[in-house]
Design a binder for these strands. Sequence first.
DNA 1: CAGGATCCAGAGGGATACTG
DNA 2: CAGTATCCCTCTGGATCCTG
Lengths: 121, 121
Amino acid sequence: MVEWDPYDRNCPTRKVLDRIGDRWTVLVVGTLAGGPLRFSELAARIDGISQKMLTQTLRGLEQDGLVTRTVTAAVPVRVDYELTTAGRSLQEPLKALEDWAKEHMASILDARDRFSVEAPR
Amino acid sequence: MVEWDPYDRNCPTRKVLDRIGDRWTVLVVGTLAGGPLRFSELAARIDGISQKMLTQTLRGLEQDGLVTRTVTAAVPVRVDYELTTAGRSLQEPLKALEDWAKEHMASILDARDRFSVEAPR
DNA sequence: CAGGATCCAGAGGGATACTG
DNA sequence: CAGTATCCCTCTGGATCCTG
């Protein structure tokens, strides 16, 4: 395996970090973790996402081989999204992040409050 | 502990995900994992970051209680940044992400290539 | 050295309207 | 239903110049 270095600006891993960094990717992958879902189901479960962002995020994940898009010809059309093997493997580190966020929320919110009080900047 | 829900648009964990999602946060925390560093050292190791973004990222982390900022009065001034306990705990899930990125880079790049060829959209 | 302040182009992303 | 297309505005973030 080649040695990737995210600290080099030209390293492709930067692009991957960007994709993951996308606020919606974490939530979409997390939502699909439970199994395949339709477009509308995803939209319903991820509060606040616009259809534009949902489409865009799904396209990105599809492009990276992390999600499959299955169209079932019917009226009306049915489209299912499902994590690939690679996608499921991503779900693990993402869940670690999500867990971390939940675990440290209280202390972070606390720190933010105190910061605005002190901060002799 | 309260039940946080990132899938709710009003949940504060959304803000935390945003902060983590910041492309620079991952790299800054990763760089500080090895121990305290000065501003200029950070800037030197993280290729492509502007001083504005570095400052901004550090302020954010400081505000969230993940990084401490220590000023040593001298001429010229010396400022060290160091991960707090909470910061070090974040370093773990972030490293998981970094590792994932390195591990799947090849297949992702491959998928992107193939995508541009097919894609009968 | 470690930044604060400013300017500014461009991407991100929401709202709305339309289509196969 | 599952998008695509368009408008438009906000915020990101880089470049540059200045200061304790």
